[in-house]
Design a protein around this nucleic acid. Structure first.
Length: 971
RNA sequence: GGGCGAUUAGCUCAGCGGCAGAGCACUUCGUUUACACCGAAGGGGUCGUAGGUUCAAAUCCUACAUCGCCCACCA
């Protein structure tokens, strides 16, 4: 008997476990159609099934790839929206007999996680720049893995019927491999290039960002009109103006027709007289200001493009931390914030400031995460070419130099650009966006696409698979890596600390040195070191020993890797040594009394290195040695002169230098490479998510998985928030089409943001955040799901309030009580019988069920049903069909409201009320018919409510059909 | 500057050519016998404004007003 009140807290977890245990989340393990039996019963009934049923009737697949939540926090209410909508579609498809796959995952979320983790470090009083790259990566890895685990549990709490056996993380090695292949293919097709181009630099996070990772902030700044020779130019950023030596005007501007392109004039400028060159360019707006401007190509995108067009020189004025470079003269080294007013003062004193507009309003690009003003910089970065002709949409932009070889470009798409591929897929309706109006937004954005910078200067992410030949700099994309070699200097000694010359003196590590070695060992632990080759001097030997303990690699010693012998200077304080022997020490061939020359060291060490490389080139080797030998090795690889080498900073204690060995470089024959230090923009990897996940789920254990991609791709629906239409959806469309030749999904359903009942965006600072798990705890996941669906259309923001959720909790109780009522009125002769027995003995119920499915109607015991009964059964059939149509048309709100209305205001308020008298009737036949009708209506209602409120419906269904699972019942 | 959207009951929103709808809130009444997380009845709207198309407009078209979102290299 059902409890008087439905207790979601006791039920939901139990039901979820039941589903998960059944294995039916995995479409490969769905029961044959019509053979819906619980796990425990399966074996015993298998024979029966095979006689009557074909083994698998699940012909077509239905696939949704879950937008992988960022593994840097826990789920918020926005996640609950996607869980609800996607679960509705998946459960509906499953009940419709499809091989329904909802593939879950999590995103490492490169920059976003980096920002979150950075804040965490700040709180802990740590600085990310002082943490070793490998160490930092590992910490963030652990952080994301923990979050991921939490999120998985949360998804379960919300009832997500996704196939956990296929779950993927964006950093899984099989995913990374696929991402690398895409990168390589793009490179070979000429759609990806590395170039010195202007990028959006966030000075706080010290990385470049793509164009869409910026926001615009309106602000008011003083606007300075400056005298520049015969012209007046205006700027809001005087601190960039030091190097301005081009003055640009529109070619048609009559005011300046006396000036010719290329003409040179002398002008008095901030730090003295400079020679300015006249440039005529149509990018100038004649109506703005004086119609003349000077340009700063290094720090402004427009200026950069003008400079590219006219092949002008570019000079960096501001460094990557926002400080002025030597070109700024007396202001060099100052932060631009502090320098600005001082520069203005100087301009005033030189009589160069014409006037100031104090209230100039303009929008400034800011980092979308930290709101710091973006500082455009020129940097060598990887870009994806989005358009057929570089910047063709914009006559102001010429082809970037690196793209001049346009003629060579070829790819399988008949030379179509990524943009064209995407636009055509949507235009031709191969991909449909819901709501339809977002297609306009999509086209509008695609029209103005610019090349996409995918390099990020952060640690957290997928390292770009580009290696550069250390000797000549040639690029090798995704090369076959034979081995990784590491050079490490020993840890600190007391002599290091005191600045005493060590040479070959046998000095032990100090405490700090041992700590450094341990830290390095931690880092190297995961790098698969096969062999450690160490200098035999104590400080190296100890370092090697510490690393051996962590990595388990064997250690061999090599005297030839010792530090340079410094003869009588060994033990001397550095200053004294340099005073006495500096002239000799810092030349190639000079040597101190009793010591070695640099040349001798170099010959000894380089011979040794070459020897080891020859014998161990296929192994991962760690060489533990000293500062001198490491610099020597690098000098020889890079073919530096001794002067070039001496210019470089000394190697720090326990500093690791990484070298990759691959096939010899086709240009110089060298086989040592260093990897690009940058990682991918997260969206480059998540843009490949639909095909990457399916390609990667070819599990060795299950033969059926091998065709995972073939069966489930293209996927059916991509359901996500409209806020990432450009960031993610557009990229998936383009990369999916490019890589697989097919659309990644047929329909895109975009939902809105979740707002509170006052239409406010939820934010932690406003304190109006609704925690979906808290709500699920309080009112049940079913109630939350219903509240998120009802009354909301695609693409519109979703307003949710506690009252609304409470309303649907009441609904769960309502249907529970309907079930109680029905159960309570079960005629005595039907009570205590199991469902299948009942079927055999009485066979009323199955017949009714058939009728409700609109199938053949049996004449057997027809008289038992009243006219009204038949009408009611016909009605529920119609309602169910209507609900199905709504779901198929992605009108989830209408589907939900239809079910709600039927159950509450038709089934409960009318049908049940009308049935009360008959259920107490003296006529046994009538009583039975009334009951059977009600039970049928209830079970049909449960079916159509199930995708929306899976827990309570499953729980009730089990009370009536203990052998069956509603989740896989036929709709 | 360009694009997209919204304006319907007190609130949140559906409806998008055929008698103005839902949930919540409100009013009145009811309830021993599935449910007060309930039931019955009810009040409440010139569908932003002004034109137009149509037999018929909340719905289609055109302006306007107000609000919101997205995109954008006027120095």
């Amino acid at each position: 008997m059902l409890e008087p009140r439905y207790d979601h807290q006791k039920t939901e977890e139990r039901i979820y476990k039941l589903w998960e245990k059944s294995g039916y989340f995995n479409p490969d393990r769905l029961p044959p159609v019509g053979a819906n039996l619980r796990e425990s019963k399966r074996e015993s009934t298998r024979k029966n099934i095979s006689i009557n049923q074909p083994v698998n009737q699940h012909k077509s697949a239905f696939t949704i790839i879950m937008p992988p939540p960022n593994a840097n926090g826990s789920l918020h209410i926005g996640h609950a929206v996607f869980v609800t909508l996607q679960d509705i579609m998946t459960r509906f498809a499953r009940m419709r007999g499809k091989k329904a796959l909802w593939l879950p995952g999590a995103d490492h979320a490169g920059f976003e996680t980096w920002v979150v983790f950075d804040k965490k470090l700040e709180k802990e009083g740590r600085n990310k720049y002082e943490i070793d790259r490998e160490q930092l990566f590992k910490e963030i890895w652990d952080f994301t893995q923990n979050n991921k685990k939490t999120m998985e549990d949360q998804l379960r709490r919300l009832g997500a019927s996704c196939d956990w056996s296929r779950e993927k993380f964006t950093l899984d090695s099989d995913i990374v491999k696929i991402v690398y292949e895409t990168f390589e293919k793009l490179y070979k097709d000429g759609l990806i290039y590395r170039g010195e181009r202007i990028v959006n630099w966030c000075p706080k996070h010290q990385t470049s960002l793509s164009d869409i990772e910026n926001q615009f902030r309106e602000q008011e700044d003083p606007f300075y009109y400056l005298k520049y020779g015969p012209f007046t130019i205006a700027t809001a950023r005087p601190e960039t103006k030091f190097g301005d030596k081009y003055v640009v005007m529109h070619p048609d501007d009559k005011r300046y027709k006396e000036y010719a392109q290329g003409q040179k004039i002398e002008v008095e400028w901030i730090n003295g007289t400079i020679t300015a060159t006249i440039v005529k360019d149509k990018a100038i707006d004649m109506k703005f200001g004086t119609g003349v401007m000077t340009i700063t190509p290094w720090h402004d995108a427009t200026d950069f493009e003008i400079a590219e067009r006219h092949k002008l020189e570019k000079e960096q004025i501001i460094d990557f931390r926002g400080k002025l470079l030597p070109v700024a003269g007396e202001f060099a080294g100052m932060h631009i914030k502090n320098a600005r007013l001082l520069i203005i003062e100087k301009l005033v004193s030189k009589g160069l400031l014409v006037k100031t507009d104090e209230h100039y309003k303009h929008s400034v690009r800011v980092c979308y995460k930290c709101n710091t003003a973006i500082e455009p910089q020129i940097k060598s970065q990887w870009f994806i070419r989005m358009t057929a002709e570089p910047h063709a949409q914009n006559q102001k932009s010429p082809p970037a130099p690196m793209l001049r070889r346009a003629g060579k470009i070829k790819n399988q798409n008949g030379g179509k650009s990524l943009r064209d591929l995407g636009v055509e897929a949507v235009k031709s309706k191969k991909i449909k966006l819901i709501p339809r109006r977002t297609e306009k937004t999509f086209f509008n954005w695609m029209k103005n696409l610019r090349d996409w910078n995918i390099s990020r200067q952060i640690t957290w992410g997928i390292r770009i698979p580009a290696w550069y030949c250390i000797t000549c700099g040639k690029t090798a994309v995704n090369p076959k890596i034979k081995a990784n070699w590491f050079l490490i200097r020993h840890g600190e000694t007391d002599w290091n600390k005191e600045g005493r010359t060590q040479g070959q003196a046998d000095v032990p590590l100090n405490g700090e040195g041992r700590q450094q070695a341990k830290k390095a060992a931690e880092t190297l632990k995961h790098r698969g070191i096969d062999l450690i080759i160490s200098s035999d001097l104590g400080r190296c030997r100890e370092t090697a020993e510490i690393i051996r303990e962590a990595t388990g690699a064997e250690v061999i010693f090599d005297k030839n890797l010792r530090e340079r012998h410094l003869g009588i200077t060994q033990g001397m304080a550095r200053d004294d040594r340099n005073a006495m022997y500096g002239d000799i020490l810092y030349t190639h061939e000079g040597k101190p009394p009793g010591g070695e020359s640099f040349k001798e060291l170099e010959e000894r060490v380089w011979e040794s290195f070459k020897h080891h490389k020859k014998s161990h080139h296929h192994k991962n080797i760690l060489i533990v040695t000293h500062g001198g030998p490491i610099r020597t090795i690098i000098k020889n690889i890079k073919k530096w002169t001794i002067e070039e080498m001496l210019e470089r900073d000394a190697i720090e204690n326990a500093k690791i230098v990484e070298l990759t060995i691959s096939d010899p470089c086709s240009t110089c024959g060298g086989d040592l490479y260093e990897q690009d230090p940058d990682v991918f923009d997260t969206w480059f990897s998540s843009g490949q998510w639909p095909f990457a996940t399916l390609m990667a789920t070819s599990d060795k254990r299950q033969a059926t998985r091998k065709n995972g991609f073939k069966t489930f791709y293209p996927t059916d629906v991509m359901e996500t928030g409209y806020d990432i239409l450009f960031l993610w959806v557009a990229r998936m469309i383009m990369l999916g089409l490019y890589r697989t030749g097919e659309v990644p999904f047929k329909t895109v359903y975009l939902h809105g943001l979740v707002l509170d009942k006052d239409r406010q965006k939820m934010s932690k600072s406003k304190g109006n955040v609704i925690d979906p798990l808290g709500v699920a705890e309080l009112y049940g996941a079913d109630a939350l799901r219903m509240a998120l669906v009802a009354g909301n259309t695609a693409g519109r923001d979703i307003v949710i309030s506690e009252e609304k959720i409470r309303g649907y909790r009441n609904f769960a109780t309502k249907i529970w009580n309907i079930a109680r009522f029905v159960q309570l009125h079960k005629p005595a002769e039907l009570r205590g019988l199991h469902a299948d027995q009942r079927g055999k003995n009485i066979s009323v119920n199955p017949r009714l069920r058939q009728a409700s499915d609109g199938q053949v109607r049996s004449n057997q015991r027809k008289s038992a049903l009243s006219q009204e009964d038949r009408k009611n059964i016909e009605q529920v059939r119609k309602i169910k069909a209507k609900v199905a149509t709504h779901i198929e048309k992605f009108e989830f709100h209408l589907a939900a409201e239809t079910v709600y209305h039927y159950i509450w205001h038709t089934l409960a308020d009318k049908i049940i009320e009308d049935a009360k008298a008959r259920l107490n009737s003296a006529d046994e036949n009538d009583r039975e018919a009334a009951y059977q009708t009600l039970e049928t209506l209830l079970l049909e209602s449960l079916k159509m409510l199930h995708p929306f409120m899976p827990f309570v419906t499953e729980e009730i269904y089990r009370k009536f059909e203990p052998e069956k699972m509603l989740m896989v019942e036929k709709w």
